Simulated scan of single mutants.
Amino acid sequence: MDFRLSPEEEAMSQFAYELATGKFAANAFTWEEKEYPWENARILAEHGLLGMVLSEENGGGGRPMIEGILAMEQITRICPHTGDIVQAANFGPIRSVDLSMEDKKLKREVIEAVISGEHTISQAMTEPEAGSAVTDLRTTAVEKGDGFVIRGRKVFSGHADVSTYFQVYCRFEDGKIGSVLMKRGMDGFNIGLPQKYMSGAHYCELTFDDVFVPKNHVITHDFRKLMGAMNVERCGNASRCVGVAQAAFDRVLQYVQERKQFGRYLYEFQGIQWKLADMYRRLEAARWLVYRAVVNAGMGVSAPMESSLAKIEANEMVQYVTNEALQIFGAYGYSKELPLEYLYRRGRGWAIGGGTLEMQRTRVAASLLGKKISQRPEKPRRQQGEE
């Protein structure tokens, strides 16, 4: 068992770090009040980092998933907003399109558009009454002629204000949950005004008023395939947590060797030494849980147990590390002068998106017990004599 990165993996990690420091560092942490870092997307495309882990036959780079995770971690470490672009073009809904969509021509068209750096794709899953309970969704797909009519509503669709394509989760007439591809501008497809998360990232409400979607726009009719791709997306979520935590830790490690109090450098205080040790310990633990989940998946999808463990650890770790970093910096960390407060806000959201910590723990327990554990109340039993 070798825990070292291969020469190819080391090279990819170093390449991504150098690209990010050279191209993205200068404007990092300035994107919160701007629309979207399209210029960074084009740079990523020029250097082959968009679609790098997608299938070669569909226009992707065919690289192992671990290389995509390594690249995204390093880019997020320098510019979290640009890390989002790597996620969207490698591990989000675009992966469902790559793995599951049957229409090869349309599949390639969408993938090539997204990895060009000129377009992006958004996920439309959550509804007002269907968050963690995704199987409660009410958006319907009713067959009509050579397609489906989509009716429903979605909330919290990230980057919907700038997205061209959307993966829309819906329930087909046979009761099965799947997803379809929608494109901005389709008749009856309405995108609400942008709202902001605590991190500053945009999301929109989407409504579908009898949107006609051709049959070749069905991404999959199989809920298990959707969740398989979601496991990979969770690894992307966890990897960006590692990147954000590393960004905070980098700054702390430098600061404690420069800042003095009581005539001594901060690192000379035992309390700070222990903080550094615990921050690094948790950062490394999360990092290697992510790597394990991705390496074991190869080019396919991560195991539910491994992706859930990685997400839990990384989501909680980034909150711990960024909080401790902010504390060590004191008022400077709490101010807007430094990005510590942003890193803290940014890391918090990943414990909600992509499956809450509570749901991930339930998945882990189910795997350990070898049982499906329903969160729904038991149906009332019929009394003797009832019809």
Rank of each mutant, 00 (worst) to 15 (best):
N216R: 15
E258Y: 03
F3D: 13
I272M: 00
G22A: 15
D161K: 08
F249D: 06
A293Y: 00
E205K: 12
G145D: 15
A20R: 04
L309D: 03
G300T: 08
E73G: 04
V213P: 09
L206F: 05
Y291D: 02
A71M: 01
L283G: 04
D136T: 12
M186W: 11
M186A: 14
R95V: 06
E39F: 02
P7Q: 01
K23V: 10
E268L: 05
D278K: 07
L266R: 00
P194K: 12
T120D: 06
I191L: 15
M299Q: 08
K225A: 05
F189K: 01
F223Q: 07
R287Y: 12
R95G: 06
G117Q: 01
S199V: 02
R184E: 09
S335C: 07
K107C: 03
I75E: 08
F29V: 01
I78H: 06
G353D: 04
E112D: 12
L106F: 03
M12L: 12
L309N: 09
E73K: 15
P80M: 03
L340E: 14
V180N: 06
G147K: 07
M305C: 05
I85H: 11
V110L: 04
L44K: 10
H81S: 11
T220Y: 05
E233C: 11
K23M: 14
V242L: 11
R376C: 06
R363Y: 13
F29I: 01
G175C: 02
S96K: 10
K34N: 09
